[in-house]
């Protein structure tokens, strides 16, 4: 309704309003699609399909809410409904877990020190980081990308992927830890770092499962 009113006031067509609001996010959508599909042609198809769908359902978009988050939601849903069906879901989900060779390196080596590892993250090649992000299990990858690359809030990510905020936090935690572990492994493998089983970052959640912020706040108040 709000949008309709705005359209009336400005005298602009729905197409004009949509282009003005949505197209500035084309680069971000394309970047996200590329990381979701890991294929340029499929990424472009995905962006096109998602934008046409968003245009058709533009009247459902609530004015004042975050259009970027809404467009990402349409993009991710379109990906789930079309591209992912065509791909082998099993392969996607297995991701990193199918490559156990790095674990061997980690077990055999020793780490020089924590500071060395921190510095290594800064020194790692862009291509390698990108490769490891792409290798993350899809749900982790989506959460990490939406948060770290596209700056969406936990609430917006929850909206985009359709899960509770607590689940977003858990996926982010595990995704980042896994990424850290992979990059650490790569650094050791390349000889940047001496591996040390003790220093190996764990992708496991802390002893207590990641609680949602709401739980944490309730606990504090009690």
């Amino acid at each position: 309704m709000g949008l309709f009113k705005r359209r009336k006031q400005s005298g602009a067509s729905q197409r004009e309003v949509f282009e003005r609001e949505a197209l500035p996010h084309l680069d971000a959508l394309h970047g996200m699609a590329l990381r979701l599909t890991r294929d340029e042609r499929q990424a472009e198809d995905l962006v096109q399909d998602a934008l046409v769908k968003a245009y058709r359902f533009f009247h459902r978009f609530e004015e004042g809410s975050n259009i970027k988050a809404w467009l990402f939601k349409v993009l991710v849903n379109t990906f789930y409904n079309t591209v992912r069906k065509e791909k082998n879901l099993g392969k996607l989900r297995a991701g990193v877990e199918l490559e156990p060779h790095r674990e061997r390196y980690l077990g055999a080596a020793t780490v020089a020190g924590r500071h060395a590892e921190e510095a290594t993250l800064d020194a790692l090649a862009v291509e390698e980081i990108k490769r490891e992000v792409d290798a993350l299990p899809e749900e982790f990858r989506t959460a990490v990308l939406l948060c770290d690359v596209h700056d969406l809030s936990y609430k917006e990510i929850a909206e985009v992927v359709g899960c509770p905020v607590g689940t977003v936090m858990s996926r982010l935690y595990r995704g980042r830890k896994l990424l850290q572990k992979r990059l650490h492994g790569y650094a050791v493998e390349q000889g940047y770092l001496k591996a040390d089983a003790e220093a190996e970052p764990s992708a496991e959640e802390p002893a207590q499962a990641i609680a949602s912020l709401e739980d944490f706040r309730r606990r504090k108040q009690a």
Binding site: V126, E127, L145, V149
Partner: peptide, 8 residues
């Protein structure tokens, strides 16, 4: 590192 590897 993630941001650096995946700029817009």
């Amino acid at each position: 590192a993630v941001r650096r590897s995946l700029p817009l």
